[in-house]
Computed example of a mutant assay.
Amino acid sequence: MSAVADAVADVYGRQAMVRLSGDTLFLPQFGKGWKVVAAGCTGADVRGLFITVLAVIVLGLAYFTTIGLLQR
């Protein structure tokens, strides 16, 4: 894999959005590394998808907290 000079990555926990000059990629982190789950989004699509991904994370954390899996 080669490096891309104009790539900008935003990482939130185990989720990332990588913006390239001509594309946007969404990657969650799995046990064996990062995998692209969405690509080719533009404009409002990018914002909408990223907000959806973050909402799923927040709802998942709220669910697991509610059932006690994250208690110390």
Rank of each mutant, 00 (worst) to 15 (best):
R14L: 10
S21G: 03
L27R: 11
R47K: 09
G33M: 15
V8R: 02
M17H: 05
G48L: 08
V8Y: 01
G33L: 12
Q29G: 00
Y12G: 11
G68P: 00
L70R: 07
G33K: 11
L27E: 11
F64K: 10
T66F: 14
F50E: 08
L59W: 09
F26E: 09
F30L: 14
D23M: 10
V46D: 10
A38T: 01
Q71Y: 12
I67E: 09
D45K: 04
R72S: 11
L20R: 13
L61W: 02
A55F: 13
G22S: 14
L49D: 02
A38C: 05
G31A: 15
G60D: 03
S2D: 13
R47M: 03
D45W: 05
F50T: 00
G43E: 01
F64T: 15
C41F: 07
L70V: 01
Q71V: 02
T42G: 05
G33C: 11
D6G: 04
L61K: 07
T66C: 11
W34P: 12
A9I: 10
T52N: 10
Y63R: 13
F64Q: 01
V53H: 09
L25D: 03
T65N: 08
G43M: 15
A3G: 06
V46R: 09
I51G: 00
V4P: 04
T52S: 14
T52E: 14
A62G: 15
L27F: 07
V58T: 09
S21W: 00
V8N: 01
R14P: 15
I57A: 13
Q15P: 03
V4L: 04
G48F: 06
L20G: 01
D23S: 13
I67G: 00
C41K: 06
V8P: 02
V36C: 14
Y12T: 11
T24W: 02
V37Q: 13
Q29R: 12
Y12L: 09
A16K: 14
A16N: 01
L49R: 09
V37P: 00
D6H: 00
A3W: 06
D23C: 13
L54K: 14
A44I: 12
L70K: 00
G68W: 09
S21R: 08
L69Y: 06
F50V: 07
A39N: 04
V4A: 01
L59N: 13
I67Y: 04
P28A: 02
K35F: 06
V4G: 02
F30C: 05
L59K: 14
I67F: 05
K35A: 13
G33P: 15
A3L: 09
F26Y: 14
G68C: 02
W34F: 09
G31H: 06
V8A: 06
D23L: 12
G60P: 04
F26L: 08
A44D: 05
L61T: 11
L70A: 13
V58N: 14
R14W: 06
